[in-house]
Computed example of a mutant assay.
Amino acid sequence: MSPQDTLNALLRKPRIRPCSEIETLPGLYLLYDHTETPRYIGETGNLQKRVYLNHCSGDENSHKWVCHYNHGRLWHSRKSPATDAVDGAVAKALRAKLARRFCSARVLPLPGLTDKGARKALEKAVRAIAPDPMNDWNDQKLIPTCAPDELIDQLLDELGWDAVQRASLDAQQARWLKKNSVSHHV
């Protein structure tokens, strides 16, 4: 399949919420943020693992929704001395739920494309012709972070999270603010 045919096929796929029913096949995917803006085109050997698990609940690094929403009450960095393991785990859990509830993806299974090098080459060719802003998060070590507070509050209410869980999130936000205040004034 040509890069243009691949991009067209990807864009014809329905946008879905990240869920465990995503196929475990290799393929390409396109991530959308909570504003319904397409931000990232990726390839993987296992669509379910990459989209549902890694991008929603992995650690910072190449997991785009994790990076984008690693802010304020949703902040957690297992490598930072400023975080708290218990409060951070609560923030990380809510961050994954936020991505799964308010973000979406298009997934294009390519069962015959098991060679990683071939998938990478196809991804690169598709990205080269993809319109803006589909590549906003590609090739970025640090993507802009945000915390959509209205959606976070809505989700907390939907989930019925108690005062203890909410206090953990508030503590993480205080740590995040302190960490960022120090790093911006040094």
Rank of each mutant, 00 (worst) to 15 (best):
D157V: 04
I143M: 15
V107T: 02
K64T: 04
G117L: 04
S77T: 07
L28Y: 03
G112E: 15
V86T: 15
D115E: 10
F102T: 00
L108M: 09
S57A: 15
S181R: 09
D33S: 11
L10S: 14
D162E: 03
D87C: 09
P26H: 14
F102I: 00
L11D: 11
P148Y: 01
T37W: 02
H185C: 05
E60I: 05
I129M: 10
F102K: 02
R39S: 12
L98G: 00
H76D: 06
T37V: 14
D162I: 01
L110A: 11
Q4W: 09
S183Y: 08
A9R: 10
A105K: 05
K92H: 09
H185Y: 06
K64N: 06
Y32H: 15
D115V: 12
G112S: 15
K64G: 03
Y52S: 09
A96F: 01
L122I: 12
Q165L: 02
G27L: 14
S57Y: 02
L74D: 03
N8R: 13
I143L: 15
A99I: 05
K178F: 07
H71L: 02
K13Y: 06
I129Y: 08
S104N: 11
D149F: 08
L177G: 05
D170N: 15
A128K: 12
P38F: 04
I152S: 00
D59A: 15
P26T: 11
A163M: 05
V90E: 04
G117R: 08
L169Y: 01
D5G: 14
K116F: 10
R15W: 06
S168Y: 02
D162V: 02
H76A: 03
L11Y: 10
P111Q: 08
W65V: 07
K179D: 06
P26R: 09
Q172M: 06
K116C: 12
R119I: 07
G72R: 01
D87N: 11
S168R: 02
D87W: 00
R101M: 02
G27A: 12
L110D: 03
D136L: 13
D136M: 11
S104V: 07
L94K: 03
M1G: 10
D139G: 11
L159G: 02
D170G: 07
G27I: 13
L113Y: 04
S2G: 14
R17S: 04
M1K: 05
H34C: 06
K49H: 15
D149R: 11
K79Q: 15
L31G: 08
E150K: 09
I129H: 09
E36G: 08
C19E: 10
N54V: 07
G58S: 06
L151M: 09
W137T: 07
E150M: 07
H68D: 05
R100T: 01
V66A: 05
V90H: 00
S77V: 04
E150Q: 10
E21H: 13
L142V: 10
L98T: 00
L110E: 09
H68S: 12
R100L: 07
A125K: 01
P148S: 13
G72T: 07
D149I: 12
P131F: 12
P38L: 05
G27M: 13
R73M: 08
R106H: 14
A118F: 00
R166G: 00
V90N: 00
L113H: 03
A163L: 11
W75P: 03
L31R: 03
L142P: 05
Q173H: 12
A128T: 10
A93W: 00
N135V: 11
L74W: 01
R17G: 03
